[in-house]
Nucleic acid binder design. Structure first.
Lengths: 352, 352
DNA sequence: TTGTATGCGTTATCAG
DNA sequence: CTGATAACGCATACAA
């Protein structure tokens, strides 16, 4: 059994109250006493019991992170960023991966609250229209005042802190870049998630809206034939590109929903004998590790995953420590995307 | 403030002891009482305070995972596997990513013990000779009886539970496969970590030993010129392959330390105009997502990351629940690697 | 089967 | 500046 504060205090020759004060460096404790205790802690390897401490302070020093998982590099990078920033604030991270299983989202939140985490970082599950599968859960959390920050999700129906990427701006900027190179027929390859929004309903895919916005800025009419949806995988990108190559007249540039799709597009064009960037310009989205390492280093829109993790944690910590009215203050942080020019984009092919 | 058990019990009209028993489904509590309490829990949204509970049961229901990080897909997959299995056992996972920073390993372990985790899953940092950077830490954990399982690490100097891949067998099998295809000049591209062991000192790279073993089995003499070390990245693989192409006579097959290196090798050979698998066979190691998705789907040795996570968690849980002598029982689980044949290996090129 | 009383290891309030 | 002592929310031995 581990040493208790009472036993430890006796060993040092003080009361446990003094030990406690020394540990939490309370102002009214003699410097030499504090030093003596600090040294003894090392000697006897005494560390306070976090459970007991949390029971009385009502702070566990832990934060729960609820997300689908980390199999995608994007999510791994984001989770890593969150963990790193949490460390800076001396919080420990309890991770809960739902694997996209609906019931687990609720269950994990319950377990986390049972563990008395000080706050929650959540990327709630969304359906294909980007609506929260479990909006009630988020709403309840909000109502009961659990400190929470939404990561990579925007809760339209309510007022919850969140930090998201400016995906609209990212797409718009990508198109702007291509337009500036002289392109006018620009395709967009997206995933099934966003395809549905083309028909005019409120869109869930900010990239698609940004793509339209970029075209509008340049006075280029929107052509539905240039928008292709596919599975979110390298294969999906491969197939999407094939379909775009059949459109007449063929596009001279393609913006992709993600780097993953863009990699597939690259393979597809390679196999089809279409040269990148000479005959076709490609822009990805994310700036994952794959982008720079692709056969043809990929021009892409960098999504600031590190910033996202950092900001989310900071907001949450502030929320946890907020008093009174500040606790109600809601903030939405929108992270700008940055164009990273590499070798997959160039001016329009002039034949020959 | 959240409901307390006392208050909740009063609401239901029983004592808090009864509530406690109902929650921990103690045998001696009337079924109808139990049912009434269960229902009331839902109604009043009452959940016991895990901190208080842990304080008395001396169980936190949490397990600490100390590892470098999850930027590499291999590690992401492993961590995900651990998390999934932990869920099956109703444990929550506190992740601590050291980022390879020496001091953090100690610090995180201390923080985790302070949080009173029930056990530890650790992949301790190793130096370039595969020795533990912080052997003392592991040893101390062992001595004080903290339930611990080493993941992907084998602690040679002591007796700690662990689960590792049979990397020796993996390499040997890879060579055997190549030999069976008729290859006799087989190269090996590894990382700086393993290069040092060639000169005869105790090796840290089991793959290298397996490679030698495979050659020996086939009666092929070991040729130091066919072993190349490089950075562990796609670029590293690219460069390593270039160097192997200059060896005379040139190898007809290459075994790679990892899929990552193999991908670089593929690029390199492509650029050098060497056809795979016609002119050069390639075998990777890991069977990461990249392997199947490579331009030329990669033959590789599958490392069972899911099994590793599952076994590690199971061992730890058993350790936590072990009584008396069983607590001392040490087990080492060695996971076999499996050859996954794809399209990057073929018989020896017969010219023309 | 249920209720009462005690202790788990801290922090915090109050005296001294 | 330091030392008793009362919570904190729960599980459990003991009584009823």
């Amino acid at each position: 059994m581990r040493l208790t504060m009472e036993e430890f205090a006796r060993l040092v020759g003080v009361s446990r109250a003094t030990v406690s004060r020394a540990i939490n460096n309370h102002p009214r404790v003699a410097p030499e006493t504090k030093e003596k205790i600090r040294a003894a802690m090392e000697q006897y390897q005494y560390w306070p019991n976090g459970l007991a401490r949390g029971l009385v302070t009502k702070r566990s020093g832990m934060v729960g992170i609820v997300t689908a998982g980390i199999s995608a590099p994007y999510h791994a990078a984001l989770v890593q960023a969150i963990a790193n920033e949490l460390y800076e604030w001396s919080y420990m991270a309890i991770f809960a991966f739902t694997g996209g299983i609906f019931d687990r989202e609720r269950e994990f939140v319950r377990m986390l609250k049972e563990r008395r985490v000080d706050g929650l970082l959540v990327s709630p599950m969304v359906n294909e229209r980007r609506e929260f599968e479990n909006a009630e859960l988020v709403n309840q959390l909000r109502v009961e005042g659990t400190p929470i920050v939404l990561v990579d999700r925007y809760f339209r129906d309510s007022t919850v802190d969140c930090v998201i990427h400016d995906l609209y701006g990212a797409a718009r900027q990508a198109v702007e870049h291509l337009v500036s190179l002289g392109h006018r027929r620009i395709g967009y390859i997206c995933t099934a998630l966003s395809r549905r929004s083309i028909d005019g309903r409120l869109t869930g895919d900010d990239r698609l809206e940004g793509y339209r916005g970029g075209l509008a800025d340049a006075g280029i009419p929107f052509d539905e034939n240039l928008v292709v949806d596919t599975r979110h995988s390298i294969d999906g990108g491969y197939e999407g590109a094939r379909r775009l190559l059949e459109v007449n007249p063929r596009p001279t540039a393609i913006f992709c929903y993600s780097d993953l799709l863009a990699i597939g597009v690259l393979h597809s064009l390679h196999d089809a004998g279409v040269k990148v960037p000479e005959e076709m310009s490609i822009v990805g989205c994310d700036d994952s590790d794959m982008a720079a390492r692709a056969e043809i280093p990929l021009t892409t829109m960098r999504l600031a995953k590190e910033d996202m993790g950092r900001q989310a944690v900071r907001m949450l910590v502030e929320k946890i420590n907020a008093e009174g009215a500040d606790k109600e203050k809601i903030r939405h942080i929108v992270l700008p995307a940055e164009l990273v020019m590499r070798e997959s984009t160039a001016g329009v092919y002039s034949g020959g």
